[in-house]
Design a protein around this nucleic acid. Structure first.
Lengths: 326, 326
DNA sequence: CAGAGCGCCGAAAATATCTTTCAGGAGTGA
DNA sequence: TCACTCCTGAAAGATATTTTCGGCGCTCTG
């Protein structure tokens, strides 16, 4: 039955629908993240199973297929299907991973910081919880990142004639960050926040150029549209998204997945997605800088020099006046 | 089948010899030690099994009873007997424990991630190191943040008539992020990247307003200048900086310190500082959202609703065309 | 040295668990 | 309303685990 794996992954696209998706190797500890990432694309029953698993990995590891099926009010078949979706060959392997995860968590942190942020949390708790959440997001994103895709994206970007970046809302800032960095090492990069201008720019792209779309939801039309245009013009297209199965992936040669952190009322998804996106963007940048080291290193040094005079030379603490508030 | 457990333990002594020994609860991670302790009392075949398990927990966790039996040149029955001796109900449970142990050991840090990123690092290492560095930065920043100052900053911002934010370069994006979030909960916030306009705006401030300066170096003149103006006009001034003793602190009522991560050639300080700055900004935002919860919650919900239609509704994977690159 | 007793050992049966198949049914779009 | 798609669980089928049971080698004794 192992053959299913390679067969479907290799060329299972030709005939019927690919029977299973095993896009990623069995996740080690990034399971919770993977569940959150994939949950939206699951059916109701599967979501129930996934939720139970994410809720109590240790408890579920102690259950058989039948037990978990009963617990979640579903059938064995659904449990197995869920395990498959999460990237394991079957339930048995999911269960092993769960045991590993449980062991991992047990040695973990104070339970208080893992809780949601609440309206009446003291500020110290907010700091601790936010820091923990973002650390978690980083770990999950790093674990879930497909280095093959990343590598391909780096290669494309390093040799690109021109790099266009699309992102709106919070993702626009991530895009600007990437553009800023790439510019610093002498590449031709531009971040578009305006969808119209983005499309206008995309039309100019051709083979050898690179287009990057950043969207957490994976379904932001304003970002997908320019990427589609770039894709059709023959540019190498890269998507940075939390939904690798979303519409944006249709037009992406490389999909870089960011982890979706637990979202709460005070901390909407759009906010927590930023951390993961920035990590991916940083990885992309460092990768490109490595490939173009000969030119990148001096460029970085030069930009640093150029800014030095903008920093005042450690002025002593001088007396300072202030208008008294009436 | 579970009944065997209790039955034999309770009163299986009367007739024949107790069939199994279950003196201890399933071992957590002290498995290797347990094996060494029990090894002398094992038979030859069982010792071979135990040795294999102790040698390579991860590898054994991947094997079925039959597999492990073959590997050790013994039979399934012996493997099960060994599992029993080690305190587990059966092989299945030993296997789960093994998986946990493996996960535990693996998490025992890779030493390489603490090293600097090098030009010839493979991409997987880059991802690991970057993630690790950023996690470190988060932890350090959270630990070093003065909650008193933060609390004061939150209070000022929550009640401010208007909030102006100054930042240039990479910090400009952080400032924009903060402004974007505050706007979302109905506050009047504006991020200035242009130093001239920043000063122009700062002149308008007065007591009851808030000015935020973001600069990693703490000595960016373009950012200090507007903050100074705001300070002198009587506004409450906040500095987010990696150098709490730098010039910017002179004009700041509250100083929020970000951690300075190790910087390397490929990863300039300006790049790593962003992570800490964003954490501080997030804390500030959440704090403000808590204080203004009555108005913030509906505002957040409203902005979410308003954007919903911008996301295409899970379109199916449609065929897609692309111009062949010549 | 021969024989009996003891207990380890593994093959195979019995059981539990996991996986696959298949047909019914809910929801959706025309 | 109808046709269609895709989700869902029951049950059959395949694997894995556990138990049973008889063989074999060892040791101890006469």
């Amino acid at each position: 039955m192992k053959e299913i794996f390679t067969a479907s992954a290799e060329h299972g696209d030709a005939g019927g629908p690919p029977p299973v998706r095993l896009d990623t190797p069995p996740a080690p500890a990034a399971l919770a993240a993977k569940i959150r990432t994939l949950a939206p694309s699951m059916t109701r029953s599967m979501q129930r199973v996934a939720e139970a698993v994410a809720d109590d990995p240790a408890g579920c590891a102690a259950l058989t297929v039948t037990g978990l099926a009963e617990l979640t009010g579903t059938s064995e078949a659904t449990v197995v299907r869920t395990a498959r979706l999460l990237g394991y060959p079957g339930y048995r392997d999911l269960r092993l991973a769960l045991a590993g995860l449980a062991a991992h968590m047990q040695s973990g942190v104070a339970p208080s910081v893992t809780a949601d942020i609440r309206v009446d949390d003291p500020i110290a708790d907010v700091v601790a919880k936010l820091a923990y959440d973002e650390q978690q997001t980083l770990a999950d994103t790093a674990a879930g990142l497909d280095t093959g895709q990343l590598s391909a994206a780096v290669t494309a970007a390093a040799t690109a004639r021109r790099i266009d970046i699309y992102g709106v809302g919070a993702s626009a800032l991530v895009g600007a960050d990437l553009a800023q960095k790439l510019l610093r090492i002498g590449l031709v990069a531009h971040a578009h926040a305006d969808p119209h201008l983005a499309v206008t720019g995309a039309v100019q792209l051709r083979s050898g150029d690179v287009a990057v779309a950043i969207t957490h939801s994976g379904s932001t039309g304003d970002v997908i549209e320019p990427l589609r245009v770039a894709f059709e013009r023959g540019a190498t297209t890269i998507a940075i998204t939390g939904r690798p199965d979303g519409p944006v992936a249709q037009y992406a040669d490389q999909v870089l997945t960011t982890s979706t952190a637990r979202e709460t009322e005070l901390r909407p998804a759009a906010m927590s997605s930023r951390t993961g996106q920035l990590l991916v963007v940083d990885c992309l940048f460092i990768g490109v800088a490595q490939r173009t080291y000969e030119s990148a290193a001096p460029a970085l040094a030069a930009s640093y020099e150029a800014l030095a005079h903008r920093h005042s030379p450690r002025t002593a603490a001088v007396p300072r006046d202030r208008a008294e508030p009436r």
